[in-house]
Design a protein around this nucleic acid. Sequence first.
DNA 1: CAGAATCCCCAATGATACTG
DNA 2: CAGTATCATTGGGGATTCTG
Lengths: 114, 114
Amino acid sequence: MPVSKKEISPCPLDAALSIVDGRWKGTILWRLSQQPMRTSELRRSIPGITERMLIRHLQDLVRDGIIERIEELATPTRVRYQLTAYGLTLAPHLEALCAWGRIHLERTKPVNQK
Amino acid sequence: MPVSKKEISPCPLDAALSIVDGRWKGTILWRLSQQPMRTSELRRSIPGITERMLIRHLQDLVRDGIIERIEELATPTRVRYQLTAYGLTLAPHLEALCAWGRIHLERTKPVNQK
DNA sequence: CAGAATCCCCAATGATACTG
DNA sequence: CAGTATCATTGGGGATTCTG
């Protein structure tokens, strides 16, 4: 039986990583950890993402309790996404990784000196 | 042209996440951050992983400079893998995530009370 | 024992059109 | 604007076999 991706390893690191597992989740969380954003703002700020994946990932993150969906009252539907209190407990670790990633990018950059 | 997975987003968080992106990389790094291990030890300690993916992921991590491959002198080939100095700079962040993951698992556990 | 080489499937992602 | 519904594609990764 095909085991769903993260079930056979009770490794807590995998549990955490599964939250950000998805082509665009890292980027999305990166933005939202800076400030709450509306759906269209997110889409525009993430070049290349499709509407489908944006919504899908946002729903995943909502389901996991990391972000929350706020409907603003307006005639054209307006929705804002922002980190939850729980999401805020994860954010610092992602920021740390982010800082490491910056160094990693510099370290890697010279390679693509084509 | 199909953009290779992590190129279009210069998001440093994604850069860091790409390192641990792979079905078993989290688990592998988790073990190796505890202690250096031989290939067969790793395989035995990670139930479910196939030889193919173990080797593949190990090679990825070596290429990324996170771990290093040490050939021990012995008649039956013996290889040991361990974190590099660079990998050691990443380890603390993974451990932090790991700690968060433990909490997350507890938080999630009640759901699977089948 | 460590690793390479094939074959192949399916879930994740993309593209696109549609709804309230 | 936010979200849904389909269909097509792809590459990650599982199963298996082979080599030194």
